[in-house]
Simulated scan of single mutants.
Amino acid sequence: MRNWFKHLFGKKQDHFARLDSRAFPHFAPGSVWLVGAGPGDPGLMSLHAFYALGQADVIVYDALVGEEILTYANPRAELHYAGKRGGKPSPKQNDISLKLIEWAKQNKRVLRLKGGDPFMFGRGGEESETLHNAGVKFRIVPGITAGIGGLAYAGIPATHRDTNQAVIFLTGHDETGNVPQAVDWHAVATAAPVIVMYMAVKHLPSIAQKLVEGGRNPQDKVGIVSNATLPHQSLMVTQLGEAGEFVQQNEVPTPAIVVVGPVVDYAKILNWQDKD
């Protein structure tokens, strides 16, 4: 399904030549582009993101940026992994930001490549603020966030006129790796018919309990979309009151997006990949 991308841009050695640089913003030496690579499928990258990959001197990429996306990188670029995955040794955020500044001040074109969208639980705001304070020029290139695009690949609309006029996006852990303490779970529980959660599988037992205690219907459907938009994407469905036990008894692949609410039922008829 994703082969069209390589077909469109040709072989690795010439696909950047197919892009007219005059149609894109100038990626100036000494600047940093913070770019969203989308939820995984390379075809969901924006053309700005694709162009930046071919222009960058240094590429600093996250754990959710797939190897196939990196095949479109400038072959002369330095690649630096800066991924953070729960429970594993990870580079510190401050160290990443300082390296971006260092490379920019060496007059390099620095690409900070993030899965999804830089400003949706991607800490792009923090990195941009640090760059601003250091006097480094930067550009933000939005990406398709998994909480929308990943659900769509599973046939789950984040909103549907018949079910919800509001949706809540939240993260399943804070900077300490624990359930977010700053979230008013009682208020969130009934604030919108649909809740979309990033990085929530590990703490789903606790989160589900908090939502039910806050007044959420324990029979609400829960969809877990793993490896969204990739060939090995999967969807698991349970109920909120059983979600904790479900993830404890089943091996749920991660990364995953968790969605709570009536839109989960649309996967039965809107899972377009099964119709290919």
Results as ranks from 00 to 15, higher is better:
residue 103 W to H: 12
residue 65 V to M: 05
residue 183 V to H: 08
residue 81 Y to C: 05
residue 264 V to F: 07
residue 11 K to Y: 05
residue 111 L to P: 01
residue 31 S to T: 15
residue 186 H to Q: 15
residue 2 R to D: 15
residue 61 Y to R: 04
residue 157 P to E: 10
residue 178 N to H: 14
residue 140 I to L: 15
residue 107 N to Y: 02
residue 86 G to V: 10
residue 274 D to K: 15
residue 103 W to V: 00
residue 28 A to C: 07
residue 202 K to P: 00
residue 233 Q to C: 10
residue 21 S to K: 15
residue 232 H to W: 04
residue 21 S to H: 13
residue 71 T to P: 00
residue 175 E to K: 14
residue 173 H to C: 09
residue 45 M to L: 13
residue 182 A to Q: 13
residue 175 E to I: 10
residue 152 A to P: 01
residue 66 G to E: 12
residue 133 N to Q: 15
residue 163 T to N: 11
residue 51 Y to R: 12
residue 233 Q to G: 12
residue 204 L to M: 15
residue 21 S to E: 15
residue 178 N to K: 15
residue 239 Q to M: 09
residue 35 V to M: 07
residue 48 H to P: 00
residue 210 K to E: 04
residue 38 G to V: 02
residue 80 H to M: 13
residue 134 A to T: 06
residue 259 V to S: 11
residue 5 F to P: 00
residue 129 E to Q: 14
residue 242 E to P: 01
residue 87 G to A: 03
residue 245 E to H: 12
residue 72 Y to W: 14
residue 77 A to D: 06
residue 99 K to S: 13
residue 21 S to P: 11
residue 113 L to Y: 06
residue 265 D to Y: 02
residue 177 G to E: 04
residue 230 L to A: 11
residue 185 W to I: 06
residue 70 L to C: 07
residue 58 V to Y: 08
residue 114 K to E: 03
residue 235 L to W: 11
residue 37 A to Y: 05
residue 53 L to I: 08
residue 8 L to S: 11
residue 189 A to P: 09
residue 261 G to H: 04
residue 100 L to D: 06
residue 268 K to P: 02
residue 240 L to F: 09
residue 99 K to Q: 14
residue 129 E to F: 12
residue 257 I to A: 02
residue 262 P to M: 05
residue 4 W to M: 01
residue 243 A to D: 01
residue 112 R to D: 01
residue 243 A to G: 05
residue 38 G to R: 03
residue 79 L to A: 00
residue 209 Q to D: 13
residue 238 T to S: 09
residue 74 N to K: 04
residue 59 I to G: 11
